[in-house]
């Protein structure tokens, strides 16, 4: 079982977390987007077989939503960090 490091609680079994999907921020001004661009935000996914930045929620723990960088083919977790430090 994958061991995920919650930035707050430390290493925990992945069963304590809920996956939040690959990182995609909501457009600042949605009304400025065309239908295709809005559909692209809603539905299209990179779905890479490579390192991917994604959301996780420590729902059975401290309730923190945080980001992780994980290689989707090997499930190797490269790092996890709070959302606030995303461009640190």
């Amino acid at each position: 079982m994958l061991l995920l490091t919650c930035p707050n609680c430390g290493d925990r079994n992945v069963s304590e977390f809920r996956f939040g999907g690959e990182l995609s921020s909501r457009p600042k001004d949605p009304s400025a987007l065309s239908s295709a661009e809005w559909a692209n935000y809603l539905y299209m996914r990179n779905n890479v077989m490579d390192a991917q930045t994604e959301w996780w929620h420590h729902n059975a723990g401290c309730g923190l939503w945080f980001l992780a960088e994980r290689h989707t083919r090997t499930n190797e977790v490269i790092k996890t960090y709070p959302y606030a430090k995303r461009n640190a």
């Binding site: 079982m1 992945v14 069963s15 809920r18 996956f19 999907g21 690959e22 779905n47 077989m49 991917q52 994604e54 989707t72 083919r73 090997t74 499930n75």
Partner: peptide
Amino acid sequence: PFSSYSMAGSLT
């Protein structure tokens, strides 16, 4: 419960 291309399988 989470996306992956790994076909390793889990105990869960």
